[in-house]
Design a protein around this nucleic acid. Structure first.
Lengths: 149, 149
DNA sequence: GCATAAAGTTAAGTCCGATTAACTAAAAAG
DNA sequence: CTTTTTAGTTAATCGGACTTAACTTTATGC
């Protein structure tokens, strides 16, 4: 954490390359669906974390409850989200991706993953094995970090 | 490219895990600077690709020349960008990050890179060597792809 | 050189996200 | 059972991003 090692330098270089590229693909796809970036982000969040209440949306995105409510409302009207009453607490809402919403997310993932397949084509078979192994190490480490909080 | 190999599956898994995480940090930082997402994206683009003209901005972000002009104007007024006349073509402008702009980008990179250092702490020394090697392979492949277009 | 095209800018208007304030309904606290 | 807190919605409004249209300035094509 004090001085950057070769490892962390390489990790940063990769992230810079990778982030820049995938960000473009991501926002391009969001635009092509007609959804705004905040709207798309909400769908992404639902996809990653599963169903949640309205308050969690406003916390995650650091906006007021009113803003979250309005944003979600548009997504519900567009058919991407289901908004149901929480049977355990009738004040609360249960937000979840609809089938249409799930399909959209999958489509987006496809687009964003396409360049990875191109990437794979630039890497020899023996290298792929080593890269796969290394990424698995990274993924495991990342999950360990996630658990902490 | 036809059927997903183990390699490409792992690559995708890594992408999903890390995109979600770093996107949050990125937009959080953008917000903390008081800059909007589009404004911040322009700074990022200048950082990655170096100085360019106004027309390139509008092409990259797929907005009208008018929108680009207005967006850039705000960044110039805020002191993040320098807008000079192109000596070779006096209609054109040369846009570049100012020192303040560069500093902001570096700060952002620090924030986004912090969790990578935490990640490093979860990985043993011998594993780091292998991961470093693998990432270098990926970086090289990514740059080969960039050159294509 | 004159017409046309290209690079930006400015202005007016639209749309969307976000805020505050006022409100409803349900749960928790006492 | 009444008070207070919590979850969410609605309305009015603000500001920012984006668009089209009209314009200025500079380069290019015949």
């Amino acid at each position: 954490m004090t001085k950057p090692t070769q490892f962390s330098k390489t990790l940063r270089a990769w992230m810079d390359t990778f982030m820049h590229r995938s960000m473009r693909g991501w926002s391009h796809f969001a635009k092509s669906t007609g959804l705004s970036m905040p709207q798309f982000s909400i769908l992404m969040q639902l996809h990653h974390k599963g169903p949640c209440g309205m308050s969690e949306i406003s916390e995650r995105f650091d906006v007021s409850a009113a803003a979250a409510s309005q944003l979600v409302d548009k997504l519900v009207q567009a058919g991407y989200l289901a908004r149901a009453e929480d049977p355990a607490d009738r004040r609360a809402r249960l937000l979840a991706l609809s089938d249409k919403g799930k399909e959209l997310i999958n489509q987006g993932a496809e687009e964003r993953h396409r360049w990875m397949d191109e990437l794979a084509s630039k890497i020899s078979t023996e290298e792929r094995a080593r890269v796969t192994e290394a990424l698995e190490i990274l993924i495991k480490a990342a999950h360990q970090l996630e658990e902490k909080y």
